[in-house]
């Protein structure tokens, strides 16, 4: 579904991503793990068009996303839950969800999707008329995920969804990610919480200072000595 090929991203003189290649297959959960500054968020931003890569290609079902206007990427079935949630703080929960379906014209389906989001996150339904800025961190994360689901995506990118959340909430978020995946949405997950991410991932890549240094199934990498030492505290 998603093929990243020889992706290079530069910030001025600094090469943040040094030619990475990876693949996300239809229906999978794929995770990119790595330390702070490894280039995980940069990779995500390149895929969703928020940063223009220096070279390389990103194919979504055969279309090169580096050659289309950024705002059309979501219309092609790729939605992102950005790092730090980035919900629209001055808008209500419901308006945030409506914005998630901004480009869509299928009114009936949008309403059905909104109901589904509320079923998945009952907390959001309780707070639908509340301004998003007044929600707790966990609720904002749920809202950011719900907002991405409102785009009815084929693939969802999640950037550090567990950041700053309590262990209990992290478990909740991860089980929801699995649930979303089981309903047919492919997932690309970027996480510092490698243990959790590897536990749910079909496939995983380790990103170190802009390069992919290891790859394998989630279970394989969880057992790998180098991964254990560097990312799992073992």
């Amino acid at each position: 579904m998603l093929n990243v090929e020889n992706l290079v991203v530069r910030y001025g003189m600094i090469e943040a991503i040094k030619g990475i290649t990876f693949e996300v297959k239809d229906g999978e959960i794929v995770t990119l793990i790595g330390a702070n500054g490894a280039g995980k968020t940069t990779t995500m931003h390149a895929i969703s068009g928020l940063i223009k890569p220096a070279s390389g290609s990103i194919f979504l079902d055969g279309t090169d996303l580096t050659k289309v206007p950024p705002h059309t990427i979501v219309t092609r079935g790729l939605a992102q839950v950005p790092e730090g949630r980035r919900v629209f703080a001055q808008e209500t929960v419901e308006e945030n969800l409506t914005l998630g379906a901004f480009f869509r014209k299928d009114k009936d389906k949008i309403e059905a999707d909104m109901d589904n989001v509320y079923t998945l996150f009952p907390r959001l339904k309780e707070r639908r008329t509340q301004l998003a800025g007044t929600l707790s961190g966990g609720e904002q994360q749920m809202l950011a995920m719900g907002r991405a689901l409102m785009a009815d995506p084929k693939i969802m990118l999640l950037d550090e969804p567990s950041m700053g959340l309590s262990p209990l909430l992290v478990s909740e978020i991860f089980s929801i990610i699995e649930e979303i995946n089981k309903k047919g949405t492919t997932v690309l997950l970027v996480e510092q919480n490698a243990k959790r991410a590897l536990a749910i991932a079909h496939h995983a890549y380790v990103l170190e200072t802009g390069k992919i240094t290891l790859s394998g199934t989630g279970a394989e990498l969880a057992k790998d000595e180098r991964v254990q030492k560097a990312y799992l505290g073992g």
Partner: peptide, 19 residues
């Protein structure tokens, strides 16, 4: 609505498909 979204966060607005 798109204007309100842009005034808060242009990056997030782009992710919503707003030009």
């Amino acid at each position: 609505m798109a204007m309100r979204a842009c005034s808060e966060d242009k990056g997030a607005a782009t992710l919503m498909g707003i030009n």
